[in-house]
Structures are given as structure tokens and as C-alpha cells.
């Protein structure tokens, strides 16, 4: 399943303007994004998403 997902992703990547550069870090744990995600999570918990 992951192989198929990766193939689909690779195909989609070719249609984007982004350049893949492995020097771009994973910012998941950066306090800025942790804080932003927390705020957005609270918002979605409160108002949900459109149908």
C-alpha cells in the first residue's frame, strides 16, 4: 500500500513547482509550529470543517 502511495506522490511531485532539497529540515517540533498547530486544533475542535 505504501509503495502505491509513494508512486502516486512521486507522480504528483512532478506537477509541482517545488524543488526537493533534503537540506530542508523537519520543523514539526519547532515551538513556533507546535504553537500554531495547537491553536488551529482548538479552532477546528470548536467550529469543525465545512461539509
Amino acid at each position: 500500500m505504501n509503495v502505491i502511495k509513494n508512486k502516486i506522490k512521486a507522480k504528483a511531485l512532478k506537477k509541482t513547482d517545488a524543488v526537493i532539497d533534503e537540506n530542508v529540515p523537519n520543523y514539526e517540533q519547532h515551538p513556533f509550529f507546535v504553537k500554531k498547530a495547537k491553536s488551529a486544533k482548538a479552532l477546528i475542535a470548536r467550529v469543525g470543517v465545512p461539509k
Binding site: 506522490k9 511531485l13 506537477k15 509541482t16 513547482d17 517545488a18 524543488v19 526537493i20 532539497d21 533534503e22 537540506n23 530542508v24 529540515p25 523537519n26 520543523y27 514539526e28
Partner: peptide
Amino acid sequence: MLNLNKYPYITNQSFLDFEF
């Protein structure tokens, strides 16, 4: 691809983190 005047941007394999 949006036809806009924009900066080039880079990302990693996760396609979640971007820099420009």
C-alpha cells in the same frame, strides 16, 4: 501550477516543510 510572479521554493521529501 499557478501562473503567478513568485519566489522559487524548496521542500523535503515529506512535502510538509518549505523554505524560500
